[in-house]
């Protein structure tokens, strides 16, 4: 008991010494330079201007209310409310800088960092384990209990998403499926002309599905540089590529189709407007420029007896951005 009292006394003395010392030093130093000052009293024009500004605020607010009821025009509403707020800002700043007493004050900054207190906290905390022998084991068990509870609480996160296998790999394209336009009308091969850029969908499928939209372009069949396995994929020089960029899932909506010989050093290309991945139309959708890491999937085409475009098989690769589950 006596030793505890003695300790407390030492702590108290040390604390008092520590707490008082900086203040004493501060008082001594403040005598060197004292920046505090106070100026009160304001010129008459300040009060007059302030009255004018404050009086104009209700007028501006009334204008806002009247406009809101009679003619809620965005520009005028903005002007009326903005003017009221600007007047208020001017009044407040004027009052704060010219009307009210101007003061420069010095405030002491409390500087924490009492080592003694830290030691005491630790001592008291560790005192809780006095007389416990299997401390490590108990702590481990408590940790395991906590981890188990956390895991149990985290399980419902699974409910966020459905199973992904079919979500990411299903495709509406198979041999024989007709190509239709945005209104659902079948697309005739003859309607696709060189230089045009047509978006097509699988007949009867959900157009919002990333696998659905393809781009149709037509080139001179002699200019194609595709490999032999894709030889029959572009009847009449009509090519179909997935419209979804393999970089970041934006819709490929730009078509570079050189019209004059002077620009023909580079052939026709499909370009994504998000990050300008550029895909070579003549060379199986190879990436010619930009960040895309995979070529644009191509849809093999055929033309049926009525001259309508049909798919001759599935897309040549996974649609949209890459991930681990893609078979490359």
């Amino acid at each position: 008991m006596a030793s505890r009292l003695w300790k407390a006394l030492v702590v108290l003395v040390l604390w008092a010494w520590g707490a008082l010392r900086p203040r004493r030093r501060a008082r001594a130093r403040r005598r060197e330079v004292d920046p505090s000052r106070r100026d009160a009293g304001s010129p008459a024009w300040v009060e007059r201007t302030l009255l004018g500004l404050l009086a104009a605020i209700p007028l501006s607010c009334a204008a806002f209310a009247v406009l809101y009821i009679l003619d809620p025009n965005t520009q005028l509403l903005g002007l009326a409310l903005g003017a009221a707020l600007a007047l208020l800002a001017a009044a407040l700043i004027l009052a704060g800088k010219r009307l009210l007493p101007q003061e420069t004050k010095v405030e002491e900054r409390p500087i924490p960092g009492d080592r003694q207190a830290v030691d005491e906290v630790l001592e008291q905390a560790h005192a809780a384990t006095d007389g416990i022998t299997r401390r490590g084991l108990l702590l481990g068990a408590a940790g395991a209990a906590g981890a188990g509870l956390t895991a149990a609480v985290a399980v419902p996160v699974v409910a966020l998403g459905p199973g992904i296998e079919d979500q990411l790999s299903r495709t509406p394209w198979h041999a024989g499926r007709a190509l239709v336009d945005e209104q659902g009308a079948p697309l005739a091969a003859a309607a696709i002309r060189e230089g045009s850029f047509v978006t097509a969908f699988p007949e009867g499928a959900d157009k919002e599905n990333l696998d659905a939209p393809v781009v149709l372009v037509r080139v001179d069949p002699a200019s194609l540089r595709a490999s032999s396995e894709r030889a029959g994929w572009a009847p009449m020089g009509i090519l179909a590529y997935s419209k979804i960029c393999t970089h970041a899932a934006c819709a490929i909506s730009l078509y570079r189709a050189p019209l004059s010989p002077s620009t023909q050093s580079r052939g026709p290309a499909l370009v994504c407007p998000c990050h300008y991945s550029t895909f070579d139309v003549l060379d199986s959708g190879r990436v010619e420029f930009g960040p895309a890491g995979r070529p644009l999937p191509q849809l093999p085409l055929s033309i049926d007896a009525q001259g309508t475009l049909r798919a001759a098989g599935p897309l040549s690769g996974p649609v949209g951005p890459s991930w681990w589950g893609d078979a490359r």
Binding site: L85, A86, L88, A89, A90, E103, T104, V106
Partner: peptide, 25 residues
Amino acid sequence: DNVVGTPMWPAYALRSLGLFAAVAA
């Protein structure tokens, strides 16, 4: 170990509210 400047009341509060009104305006 000190801070030198304008105290919150009265001048700074009004100036800062003025800044709020100016930002909103």
